[in-house]
Design a protein around this nucleic acid. Structure first.
Length: 574
RNA sequence: GCGCCCGUAGCUCAGCUGGAUAGAGCAGCGGAUUUCUAAUCCGCUGGUCGGGGGUUCGAGUCCCUCCGGGCGCGCCA
């Protein structure tokens, strides 16, 4: 797209006398009108002429000066149509050249993006409440990496807090009563829930729990520290198994405990910036001066009893991350419920005159709700929807579908894994992240229409054509492509040409759904094209076949990249 | 009460940071199969873009206001 729009902008600038940066191109509503459009409204106003007249005049002036691009005036619009052979040659060569890097860039050279995502709590299995942050974050990591950024994914696990006192006591008392061998995380969940119950009624349990947490906080080695470490390790092992299935890896796992030693210096840093005050016995930063909406909600850094708070830890993490990475952007993939918290954090940075305050972003997302818009997290024990179970269910459904549709398929188990997970992942990424998601198994398990499996299926069909061409030694393989055969593939070519722009937009807005929608549109266009008998690739006239084969290859590459950026597998067969 | 978010077809959503007749998927109905994989494709049915003002040559998109739903609001994370 770029080379064509640049050429057009240059020509327009030439004929209007305006800077090309002042001119805006867009895509026509109806693709039949052209590939690129220039609305003449602004120019017409300036010249005090009717827009259609300006368009007609420009069309006449430009005439045939743009090689391979025809210009026409339709009402107030100037429409440009790129000759299909030229479009095909340029676009397909571009994909060929870049391969898996197609649509990427070097935008991010020497720039670091920190992505804080997933962040489950230890001693509990990951449940579906963690799915959104995990999947969104993982996709963002891939998108930024594709654009050449150095990306640091951080898993800010919840591994600290008073609740661990209770867990330690529960371990002491009831360790033998639960099965910590077979599935330690589920065993720990059981103990964790028993400890919460005991904390309500059992006074001795309470005392012991407080003592255990104090012991943990003291940093001394010993039984408590040992147990905490074991819990952390076991939990992480469980998380990692899930991450591995989803193809996710963090650069760093740094829980709250990691920042524990930095709390004192963090408080010092904020205090010495002169922005703190004591309010109702607590140490706070007033924020009304930098953000009117925060007049009534100061940021609390230290409780009356001297202990620190959530915001203190996140500030410690932010300072540490800034010193270590000097990030271009630091993204927090955290639910929208915490908007106030992140707004406060940024406001504190602004009050401290930290010049990098604007680089900190809360990448918020809508809630995952149960049927009837009930909060999932509020579900009672026994109803916890463990993420692994949900993944299993999706994979099993995928296996059933494969059994029904393609029982001869080699490597069925692996494909079922890819497709089941693909459905799950795509369901979370297909709409704007801010939208709430209603948990509905029919949605997760749907494999038709606008779904992950649809994208994967289209990819597999393209792969199949390439495979068959190779296997049969089709005459198209060695032929010189005749791009005139791609006259009716304009939409696909234009779509392929836009991948880079879409990836950029997705990164800028931290919005993977841009790519989801792109992939859906591409798959739909490709499927339609493939269905038409006149576009048959194999066994057709060799030069036409060669052109179509090149299109199939480029479409497969582009769709494959789209899937990969979303964090989905692109099966060759399914 | 204050702050923020959402409201487009029966359902779930797109609508390219104001532009040419508002688009998909699901559901419903009707078609296409000696298939380069029917997990597909084609057609039909379905919309006062929550209501009302305003800005503009032009508003689903920007501003104001009202309505409906949600999230959050000092010693939890």
């Amino acid at each position: 797209m770029q080379p064509f729009s640049d050429k057009i902008l240059a020509a327009l600038a030439d004929h209007t006398g305006l800077a090309s940066s002042a001119l805006k191109l867009e895509s026509p509503r109806d693709p039949g009108l052209g590939d690129i459009a220039f609305p003449c409204f602004a120019l017409a106003k300036e010249r005090k002429l009717p827009p259609p007249a300006v368009a007609a005049e420009l069309a006449a002036k430009l005439g045939t000066s743009l090689e391979g691009i025809t210009v026409s005036a339709t009402g107030p619009y100037l429409n440009f149509r790129i000759a299909r052979p030229l479009l095909a040659r340029e676009v397909l060569a571009g994909v060929e050249r870049a391969g898996a890097k197609y649509g990427g860039s070097s935008d991010g050279a020497d720039k670091t993006i920190v992505v804080d995502f997933s962040s489950p709590n230890i001693a509990k299995p990951m449940h579906i409440g963690h799915i959104r942050s995990t999947i969104l974050g993982a996709s963002l990591v891939r998108i930024f990496r594709h654009l050449g950024y150095r990306v640091i994914g951080i898993n800010h696990i919840g591994d600290w807090g008073a609740q661990f006192g209770g867990l330690v006591v529960a371990l002491r008392r009831w360790k033998s009563e639960v099965d910590l061998e077979r599935d330690p995380v589920l065993g720990l969940l059981d103990l964790y829930q028993r400890s919460k119950e005991a904390l309500k009624h059992d006074e001795e349990f309470q005392r012991e729990s407080v003592a255990a947490y104090q012991e943990l906080e003291s940093g001394r080695e010993g039984e408590v520290r040992e147990l905490w470490r074991w819990v952390t390790e076991v939990s992480l092992r469980g998380f990692n198994a899930t991450y591995e299935r989803l193809g996710i890896a963090h650069e760093f796992v740094r829980g709250e405990s990691y920042y524990e030693p930095l709390l004192a210096s963090t408080l010092e840093r904020v205090k010495s910036a002169g922005v703190t005050e004591i309010s109702e016995g607590a140490l706070v930063v007033m924020l009304g001066a930098v953000d009117k909406g925060l007049k009534a909600t100061p940021c609390l850094l230290q409780q009356t009893n001297g202990t620190t708070l959530y915001a203190t830890r996140d500030l410690a993490a932010l300072f540490s991350r800034w010193e270590e990475f000097h990030f271009e952007r630091c993204l927090y993939v955290v639910g929208g419920e915490q908007k106030l918290h992140f707004r406060q954090l940024k406001a504190v940075l602004v009050r401290m005159n930290e010049p990098w305050a604007s680089r900190v972003e809360h990448v918020d997302f809508g809630m995952l709700l149960g049927p009837g818009r009930v909060k999932i997290a509020s579900r009672k024990r026994g109803e916890v929807l463990v993420l692994d179970d949900l993944i299993d269910e999706c994979v099993e459904e995928a296996a059933r579908v494969i059994e029904a549709k393609n029982p001869e398929l080699a490597g069925k188990a692996q494909v079922a894994e890819q497709v089941g997970i693909g459905a799950l992942v795509f369901n979370d990424l297909k709409r704007e992240r801010i939208k709430d998601v209603i948990f509905d198994k029919r949605e997760f398990l749907a494999f038709e229409g606008d779904t992950g499996p649809y994208l994967q299926y289209t990819h597999a069909r393209l792969a199949s054509i390439l495979r068959k061409a190779q296997a049969s030694g089709d005459a198209a393989l060695g032929a010189e492509p005749d791009f005139a055969a791609l006259e009716n593939a304009g939409e696909i070519l234009l779509r392929i040409a836009r991948l880079g722009d879409v990836a950029r937009a997705a990164a800028a807005r931290a919005e993977p759904s841009e790519l989801s929608q792109y992939a859906l549109a591409l798959a739909r266009e490709v499927s339609t094209w493939l269905t038409q008998p006149e576009n048959r690739v194999l066994g057709s006239e060799p030069r036409a076949g060669a052109a179509r084969l090149a299109l199939v290859r480029a479409a497969k590459t582009s769709l494959g990249i789209g899937l990969s950026l979303l964090g989905m597998a692109a099966p060759e067969e399914m």
